[in-house]
Design a binder for these strands. Structure first.
Lengths: 198, 198
DNA sequence: GTTTAATATGATACTAAGTTTCATATTTTG
DNA sequence: CAAAATATGAAACTTAGTATCATATTAAAC
């Protein structure tokens, strides 16, 4: 038994490092030359991997910017919300809590990424698609909490509205980078809870 | 002066016919062989145009299914809604009125198209992206009606919620093709107006 | 009606994303 | 250390989408 086998497995750690490296170099190149002008080949070179390996880590060029796994965090946080809260407020808290423990560094990266994503049509489309996919998760969570069925239109409308508000906030945030994303999201979801007064 | 020059211009009519022909043949091929398995080249052959010409009519393969111009109809209908209605109800009426004058034939085509689009990830993403683009239109209309600013978060949240509900209904409809789309949309928007009771 | 200007089409060559296949290297396990 | 499992690299391929230029068709002017 050698020193290297700590617990996570060398393979896993190496993969995680490679993945992070690809994302880092990709982001730098995108910043410098623009998203479209940067080819996957260039990213591969910068990250010192082969072209084919890139697609083993990310199935599309877009994914290199969009992959994040905070679904499990969201689920955990949502399920631990007090029972007296409405589904919407529980969801609001869960979404906020996920982002509340970010360092200023991480927040700044997120802001930059958001601006980039929202300004490139292809990326924006992919991001929105991701968020709509998350609708399914919201439906699932809401059903568990309320005892309603997946096919209940009220649940669907709820999940749709929350997701739509989320998208609109991301857009707003891209246009107003100086704003506080969390505050915006909280305010917007509160407006939804209040029946969208106009 | 020959018989042919009626009023719309020969060129315009020819273009419209070609466009319709491309869409028709594309839809048939997609039905038969699937979206991905059908190449633009095959569509071009079927519609008896060149490969390059296809992209003069539709800038992407997706667009051949997604292009529709009922934005102007929506705007007109919205602006003619009675002033005492809330923005949401005015929007609801406008969206419904657009679809209410469809023939059963058209409704059936729409249903089929919706099923196809929602079942192919790429198409679904493109469609959702279209709908989110329409959010800008809703923002614009809502501002005109309420006198609020584009940058008002309440307006943004409103537009986002309506769009999100719309998306969720399309998804629901794809899963339940036997349902009445208009009834679903109306019901879902009513729930939104009622504050999304759960 | 013929000429001229504007626009639509077709052919061709090109770039880059994404897929497939297979050989090679590296880690893990026994 | 040997064998099984998995990660990587190389190369050839398909197809969406772009750019360019010559040709054909329609519209407009005279």
């Amino acid at each position: 038994m050698s020193v290297k086998s700590t617990q996570a497995g060398l393979r896993e750690r190496k993969k995680a490092k490679t993945m992070a490296s690809i994302q880092l170099h990709a982001l730098q190149l995108f910043r410098q030359y623009g998203y479209k002008a940067t080819t996957v080949e260039q990213i591969a070179e910068a990250a010192e991997i082969s072209y084919s390996t890139f697609f083993r880590y990310f199935s599309t060029k877009e994914d290199v910017l969009l992959i994040d796994n905070y679904d499990p965090l969201l689920v955990a946080s949502f399920e631990s919300q007090p029972a007296h809260l409405t589904p919407l407020m529980a969801l609001r808290n869960a979404m906020l809590s996920g982002a509340k423990e970010m360092t200023p560094q991480e927040l700044s990266t997120m802001r930059e990424r958001n601006e980039l994503v929202m300004s490139v049509p292809e990326l924006r489309a992919a991001m929105i698609n991701n968020m709509v996919s998350m609708m399914d998760l919201i439906i699932e969570l809401t059903c568990r909490r309320t005892g309603r069925e997946r096919d209940d239109l009220a649940v669907r409308a709820f999940a749709g509205a929350v997701t739509g508000v989320n998208i609109s906030v991301m857009q707003y945030y891209a246009e107003h980078p100086e704003a506080d994303f969390l505050a915006l999201l909280e305010e917007a979801l509160n407006k939804l809870e209040a029946g969208l007064p106009l």
